[in-house]
Simulated scan of single mutants.
Amino acid sequence: MASSTLPWQRVWQTIWGLIPSPETDGRLLLALDDTINPKSGTHIFACDTVFDHAAKTNQSQYPWAQNIVAVGLLKRIKGRWGCLFMDFRFYIAQKTLTANSKNARIKDQPVPFQSKLEQACHMLIGISQHFPNTPVLAVMDSWFGNYSVWQPVRKCLGLRFHILSRLRSNNVLYNQLVESKENKRGRPAKYGKRIGSTAEIAKQFVSLAKNYTVELYGKTRQVSAYDQVVVLKTLKCSVRVVWVYRKTQWIALFTTDLTLSVNQIIEFYGARWKIESGFKELKQDIGSQSAQCRKAAAVINHLNFCLMASTLAWIYADKLKADPERRHKVKGRTSFAFSDVRHIIAEAALNEDFVRLCPKPSNSPINSIVAVLLRMVA
C-alpha cells in the first residue's frame, strides 16, 4: 500500500476509458466539490484542523481531518443519477506548509501550495483534455462557481467549457449591452442597465414564474421557475439565470451555456447532490474514513483505490443487463442504491470465474489487485 511508484495518472485515464457513453445530452457533466475526511491520530499525511461548515450541533466545527477536492462525472445509470469519481487532490493550507508540518511532506519534501481553486482548474483541464472536442459543463456550488475557476479553464479549453452554479442573494445583475450610435464621452460601456440584486429580482418576477415538470432527486416534480438572460459582472459574460420558487423559499441558478433549457438547468444542478452522496459512500461504505494509513504514499494510494472502487462499481452497474433490484425498500424510492451494486459485486466475487480475473495472492509480494490495475494500464 505504501508504494510510491504506482502510475496513478495513467491508471485513472484507463478508468476514464472504461466509462460507457460518458456524455449526457451531448456534454460531459463534471461535478466539483470538496469534503473532509475525519481521522484519529497525530501524524497522518494531509491532516489538519479544518473548519466544517456542515457540522451538526453535536459535532466539532474544527475536526482533525483531511481536506479533499474532487471531481466526479454525473451520469444517468439505469434510470438514476450516479457520480463517478475521476480525480482528486489533497488540500493543505498555507499556514500548515509555513509551519513545516510533518503532515505536509512527501519523501521529506514539502508539498507545493495550491489553492482549492487552482486544484479545481487543473483537474477540470486534465479530464477535459482526455475527452477532446466534447463540450464540458462543470456543475458546482456558489463557492467554486466564480471567475477564478471560470477564466483559467475557459482560456485553456475555449468555447466548449461552461459552468452551472448557484448565485448568491447579493449578486448584482445587469441587462445585456445594447449598442448605441450616439457618441458619448468617456470609456464605452461594458454592461447594460443595472437590473438589481438576485434577491430583488426574485421578488419582482415571482408572478411571471411558469410551471415545469422535472426529474429531481429521483422523482418527477412540479416546480415554478422564471428565467432571464443577463450579464453577470463577476464572470464578465452573459449567463442564463433561473429562479426556482418553492413555497416561501427560492434559489437562483445560473449557467454560461445559453443553449440549456430551464428543465436541464434544474435537473443538472439537482444531480450535483450525487457527489455529496458519493462522499458519504466513499467514507462509510468504501472505508476511506476508517483507514489507518499514516505515511504520504500509503494515504495517497489508499484514497486512489477507494475512489476507483467507487467508480468501477458504477461502471459495473451501468453494464448490467437488468436494473439492480433494491434490497431495502424505502417509501418513494424505486431505483437501486449504491449498496445494492456492491452486494451484486460481492456475489460475483464469490463465483469461481472471478478467480481467473483476480487470482488469489501467492507467495509473490505483489498484490493481485495492483497487478490487475497495472495490466489495465499496460
Rank of each mutant, 00 (worst) to 15 (best):
F279E: 05
L159G: 14
L159P: 09
S335D: 13
Q264D: 09
R326H: 01
L159E: 14
N301F: 00
S277N: 08
R333D: 00
L32Q: 02
V69S: 11
I201E: 05
T35G: 01
T5C: 13
E352K: 08
T14F: 14
C83G: 03
V370C: 13
N37Y: 12
L282M: 06
R160C: 10
W81N: 06
A199L: 12
L232R: 02
L84I: 08
V231D: 15
E276Y: 07
M123P: 14
H43S: 14
I92H: 04
V11Q: 15
D34L: 01
S142M: 11
L159A: 15
V377M: 04
I286W: 01
F305A: 03
R168F: 11
L74G: 10
L117R: 05
K210W: 00
V136C: 08
R272E: 01
S169C: 09
I106C: 07
A298Q: 03
N363M: 11
Y212R: 03
A349T: 10
D340W: 00
C306P: 00
P132L: 02
I366A: 00
E325K: 15
K190M: 06
L28Y: 06
I127R: 08
D323A: 12
T14L: 15
K236S: 13
N146M: 14
E352P: 00
E179H: 15
S169F: 06
V153K: 03
E281N: 13
R10V: 08
I300N: 01
H43W: 07
K321H: 06
A225P: 00
L97T: 04
V172K: 15
I300W: 01
V377C: 04
V178S: 10
D227N: 10
K193N: 13
Q204I: 05
Y212C: 04
K107T: 08
Q114N: 11
L84G: 14
D87S: 06
H162L: 03
V11R: 08
R221N: 11
N146L: 12
L216P: 00
V214T: 02
S142H: 12
Q114K: 10
V69T: 09
P112V: 00
V111C: 12
F254I: 04
T256M: 02
L159C: 15
R326S: 07
Y62H: 12
A199Y: 08
T255C: 04
S277Q: 10
L350H: 10
V242F: 01
W150Q: 14
V139D: 15
E325Y: 10
N171P: 02
E281W: 07
R166E: 15
N263V: 15
E325R: 07
F113I: 08
R326L: 06
L124A: 09
V372H: 05
T57L: 14
P63M: 05
P324T: 01
Q151K: 14
I366R: 03
G72W: 02
I300A: 07
G196P: 02
F88T: 05
L260M: 09
Y147T: 12
L258D: 09
R375F: 09
A296L: 00
F144E: 02
W81S: 09
D52F: 03
V341E: 00
R272Q: 05
Y226S: 03
F305R: 03
S128D: 11
L117G: 05
N133L: 13
K219T: 06
W143P: 04
S180C: 15
R105P: 03
R194C: 14
P63W: 10
A65T: 11
V178E: 14
A317Q: 02
A70T: 13
R76V: 13
V69P: 01
Q9T: 14
